[in-house]
């Protein structure tokens, strides 16, 4: 089976500093894969390379077998790849509804493609329902609580009906209660969506992911099922005393 997301010997260096070195990653369709590692391990760099935000210094990225190295985010999106941001990227001065409308309108673009008002409204409402934001549809994003903004962040990524979803620290900065709510939402996502998640919270990682890849100092330290990673000595050492 062709991997949904595959990186082949991806490296990234900034001058003399090597942020990533020969990283091979392969995520099967429908798989939920987490990337973990201590600060500075290169998780974010790998994530932004896969998301098309920056090109790798060397190596290639394949989406469904097609070479997408150096492709722009909008080109990756056209391949069914969607993402959330670690720091919210929302349309702050628009309402929740208008935010999702912009996201849903994205796949109804083109001169000869048009969608009826009713269909679009139903679609927007459906997305909001899935992330429990229907009640706040008319609230300006800037006036929303942080936890709700994170939910909207997820909503915008889902609006594109992605086949592959990249989640960049979805629970960053959330309270334990908000984290639990977000986790439930992520677990409830359709299984056919391939998920690649970078996350600090180990509870979230181990409850959501099928497989986990551990990065340390820009290199792959371990790659395996949740159970394998939990029992891996090297990984515990890297996390120095942190119980996994």
């Amino acid at each position: 089976m062709t991997a949904a997301v595959r990186t082949s010997r991806v490296s990234k260096s900034y001058g003399a500093f090597v942020a990533l070195k020969d990283v091979d990653l392969s995520v099967e369709p429908g798989e939920r894969r987490a990337i973990i590692g201590p600060n500075g391990a290169g998780k974010s760099t790998l994530f932004s390379i896969i998301a098309g935000q920056k090109p790798p210094t060397s190596g290639s990225i394949f989406i469904d077998g097609a070479d997408m190295t150096g492709a722009r985010p909008d080109q990756l999106w056209a391949r069914g790849l969607s993402r959330t941001f670690q720091r919210n990227q929302l349309f702050q001065n628009l309402t929740v509804w208008e935010n999702v409308e912009l996201a849903c309108a994205a796949h109804h673009r083109g001169l000869f493609k048009s969608v009826s008002r009713d269909a679009l409204d139903d679609e927007i409402g459906g997305v909001l329902e899935r992330v429990n934001l229907l009640g706040s549809h008319d609230v300006r994003v800037a006036n929303m609580a942080y936890g709700e903004q994170r939910q909207l962040e997820l909503a915008l990524a889902l609006a594109g009906r992605p086949r592959i979803l990249l989640l960049d620290e979805p629970t960053a900065g959330m309270s334990p209660a908000e984290t639990q709510a977000m986790l439930r939402m992520m677990i409830a996502l359709p299984r056919e969506i391939t998920i690649l998640i970078v996350e600090h919270d180990m509870d979230v990682v181990f409850s959501l992911a099928d497989r986990v890849m551990v990065l340390n100092l820009g290199e792959v330290l371990a790659d395996g099922t949740v159970r394998e990673i939990q029992g891996n000595r090297n990984v515990s050492e890297v996390y120095m005393g942190k119980a996994l």
């Binding site: 998301a51 985010p73 056209a78 969607s82 941001f85 990227q89 208008e98 912009l102 996201a103």
Partner: peptide, 24 residues
């Protein structure tokens, strides 16, 4: 128009618009 609202989206968050598939 939808075009105008797309422009507002770019003003509010260019990275998001790119991630949503818009050729900014």
């Amino acid at each position: 128009s939808r075009f105008g609202r797309t422009l507002v989206g770019i003003r509010e968050s260019t990275p998001r618009m790119r991630a949503l598939g818009y050729n900014v």
